[in-house]
Design a protein around this nucleic acid. Structure first.
Lengths: 305, 305
DNA sequence: GTATATATGCTCTTAATGAGTATATATAGC
DNA sequence: GCTATATATACTCATTAAGAGCATATATAC
């Protein structure tokens, strides 16, 4: 019962050396849409090697990103580690991916592609996404024909057949499209592709992971506030949430949630709009920093299929 | 707007080579309690080096675990990757941790320590946990005295001051105890320790991550079924959920959930109990495999503090 | 029978969520 | 002043999920 396992490998096993790279998915919001900072014309993420002097992976990543770009990183989390076996050279290549939030700021008009350029079906605010999802549903139905369990999977993941659209399933959706050969990265049979930019290696999969994670994260932590300026209007806050979740929310219910939880406090200042009543500016009230809940104010989506 | 970032590091930067190790948290249920397979008298996890021939990290891990132990791995997921800077040798050591489920089976009476031997406060089924949490609350109050925000954090994470106990926060709880110097790994000042086994390096933190993850995972995926035998009674299923969540559930409401979702189908067979009516044996019905929801049948917990 | 455990059927309260209606307030431009 | 525009609030209401309790069959061993 309390006996130990034998050591699983002989002590004589030679350690294998790997190249190790840190990959950063840097997210910021501009023009009401989440963007990522990219390299190689939107096909790659910034990355750097792990150094001997780095005391932790996260610190290593923050270090070189902040030094090289001058950007301050907000909420940071590890996404996934993957190996690249086709790397050759007789040793492995390991990549460790991170996601970090950058505060909205006109300065870094750098480098940004909209996340939804890569996953057009994920932005349910755009009416075109419903049409696209119709197309996708048709293609998946073909792919799944005869295989009931496979279709069941498509239906739950894409919100078909009376299932609800779950915005956090963007990774599963991408994986399903990959399996079905509908994205450039897996398009072995030259069937017509779905719209959406692709990336090098499996970086688009990493981006899908990031999208899933950020959608999950903003629901129950105050991470959104790391994407907004220090002062913001409640509408800005709502639109930031909407842009990440890819769907609209009910204004009154959203404010009910925000204010019940005392997540923000009003400042003395006001927005200066082109037209209309100036909006009150708020700031994040970190007293309630540990937990919050900002979902639960969704508006209905048009049905697919 | 659509401009690329400059490459962040000069091409001349030398790649740094790392030793890379795969660490496995192997979980199984026995005696109504989740257990882990351990090495070094419960202080370490089985691990093995990444080999050049491994085509993916997950496959690499499955390969050597299954070959060395003869165990079949069920639901498997990557937990976290971390660097060990104190490793010396002029190069880094990178460890990639995985969690995998093993089916309940009397054979592997191997190597198992209860997860709650490491985190006694996490098993709220045990009445002793409430007493222990009283102690912890007192110690944390001392540690946080004067720092309102710090106390706020303790309260939400440990379910104090009218907050609810959230079983998925086991990692945050361990981290808080670490920061407060109440666990062996961070006990710099020789204050009295909390009960609970410790592990080498930061392996106990990895275990806390695993506990958080599995508690989150079993709520909305059918991963529990990878811990149970092929055929099981509904009570067994409920007790498996309870053992992972560390809290009791309401029998009638639990069955309402299971049966509404058609997660299981009855077999022709029955349990053979020592006493009492024999229980019907069920099996997992993978038609609904994609998503399920098995939380939402909790019983009230005694208040702490 | 009796003890024990499985198995099931209801009811009820509370709270969260989703959704709608109405209205007051503050600016710019005419 | 009036209008267009946008912010900001105050309510109400229906539906559902979650939590909790009560009662009662049913099948076995002793």
């Amino acid at each position: 019962m309390i006996r130990d396992l034998e050591p699983l490998l002989p002590a004589s096993a030679q350690p294998v050396l790997c190249e190790t790279e840190l990959v950063a998915v840097l997210v910021c919001i501009s023009h009401n849409t989440p963007h990522i900072l990219t390299l190689e014309h939107g096909r790659s993420f910034p990355s750097g090697p792990l150094m001997v002097e780095h005391r932790s992976l996260q610190k290593g990543m923050r270090n070189w990103v902040e030094r090289q770009t001058g950007l301050k990183l907000g909420h940071t989390e590890q996404l996934y580690t993957f190996a690249d076996p086709r790397h050759g050279h007789g040793h492995q290549m390991v990549r460790i991916s991170y996601m970090a939030f950058i505060r909205e700021n006109s300065e870094h008009a750098l480098a940004a592609h909209s996340i939804y350029d890569y996953f057009p079906w994920e932005d349910r605010r755009d009416p075109a996404s419903t049409t696209l999802l119709h197309t996708i549903a048709g293609r998946l139905r073909l792919w799944a024909s005869g295989n009931a369990q496979r279709w069941q999977r498509c239906a739950t993941v894409f919100g078909l057949d009376g299932h609800h659209w779950n915005d956090e399933l963007s990774l599963q959706r991408y994986e399903l499209l990959w399996e079905a050969g509908l994205v450039a990265e897996s398009n072995w049979q030259n069937t017509p592709l779905l719209p959406g930019l692709s990336m090098v290696r499996d970086y688009r999969r990493i981006l899908a992971t990031a999208l899933s994670r950020m959608r999950a994260k903003i629901r129950y932590t105050p991470a959104v506030f790391d994407l907004l300026p220090q002062q913001f209007t409640l509408l800005q806050l709502q639109q930031a949430m909407e842009s990440l979740a890819g769907r609209f929310m009910h204004k009154q219910n959203f404010r009910r949630l925000v204010q019940q939880q005392k997540l923000v406090s009003r400042t003395a200042e006001y927005d200066s709009p082109v037209q209309g009543r100036p909006a009150q500016l708020y700031q994040f009230a970190p007293e309630m920093a540990e937990h919050c809940y900002l979902a639960g104010a969704k508006l209905p989506l048009p049905a697919i299929s």
